[in-house]
Nucleic acid binder design. Structure first.
Lengths: 185, 185
DNA sequence: GAATTAAGTCAATATGACTGACGTAAATTT
DNA sequence: AAATTTACGTCAGTCATATTGACTTAATTC
């Protein structure tokens, strides 16, 4: 066995808590900030991405590939430029990942009809199957999280997540997510 | 102006939608998966981390530094080993980041009382101030997101986020987040 | 006294991002 | 028709964050 934390589950923090609060700075009237949502979001998002990451490792893909695959599968025929806007990465970063996905037969590029400069992106049958697999994993975690929650919880969470996003991006995000629920309320 | 997308706001996806759905694979009875929460979580988390990232850039720090700073500030006197467990990174990864934070006078290491092998971690006054600044940014985004939501929404979101986390980690996470709300329900 | 634990270090590597500079083809504007 | 802009791609170099693996030192525990 090596050096590395293999089962590094969050361990019982700070067995020695005697020093807690001994920092010299605690005296300038800080309102008690609700840290818990910040930390829960950190842990929740980490686990949320973990399931797909594990599968992708087998294909020698990473999270970057997952993001591209996901949005291409959800938006068949998407332009490269649009994908850059969605992911907010540079052409060069996308280039590498996209090339690997195309080479692996996961994504397919077709010339645009009206505009022959465009390389419209589609998942192949294989790529679509992988995308669905990964989505299902994340969906299962979401379902488990929603079990036993009061009626209307899903709508509340949906609205909360949207409102966490910069308001100026709402129109574009709403176009992308195409929820069957009415997010505009 | 360079090559790079400077204001790469999510752009109006796929102006050419004629091809949508032309993939050959759509015929094996897929239940409609609720993609929207997956995508909202992606965008929400990205914006959530953006505010602190922007501030940290000025200090020549990155997100890795933020995570360390946050958990040290919240758990004064935390052991290095525990921090590794919380962050789930290797000693070597933490080492680099921690050294930079210590060199910059943001974090302080003190020898353990009972166990002199330990290097208990504390934020300095300066480090604490930075941690509070960053927390406030994230808290403000959370507050904006919660405005106008029905009564009880915060508790629902808190519970949802906890349940997104692997159940076996709940005990440790609960110890860490020390919410003033009762998350165990 | 032996084994384990806490912390750190050296070295090499991978991934995903970046900046900056160009090139080409196609479409659009003037 | 010429000039400009757009869509896409590429070459080259760099950086941040993470990894694996091997090893050391000091202190504690068995």
């Amino acid at each position: 066995m090596t050096d590395v934390n293999f089962k590094p589950a969050v361990s019982p923090v700070s067995r020695d808590r005697k020093d807690a609060g001994k920092r010299l700075a605690d005296s300038k009237g800080e309102e008690t900030l609700p840290y818990d949502l910040i930390e829960l979001l950190f842990f929740a998002y980490r686990d949320f991405t973990k399931d797909p990451d594990d599968v992708l490792t087998k294909y020698e893909f990473g999270r970057a590939h997952h993001r591209v695959l996901h949005f291409v599968d959800r938006n068949p025929g998407v332009m490269v430029t649009d994908l850059l806007g969605i992911l907010r990465i540079t052409k060069q970063s996308l280039g590498r990942v996209l090339k690997q996905l195309v080479d692996a037969g996961i994504i397919e590029q077709r010339e645009g009809h009206h505009d022959r400069r465009q390389r419209l992106l589609y998942t192949t049958e294989q790529g679509h199957a992988l995308a669905v697999d990964l989505t299902r994993l994340q969906q299962k975690r979401l379902e488990r999280a929603l079990i036993g929650m009061p009626d209307g919880s899903e709508e509340i969470i949906r609205k909360f997540l949207l409102q966490m996003i910069d308001p100026e991006d709402h129109p574009d995000v709403l176009k992308l997510v195409r929820s069957s629920y009415d997010l505009k309320d």
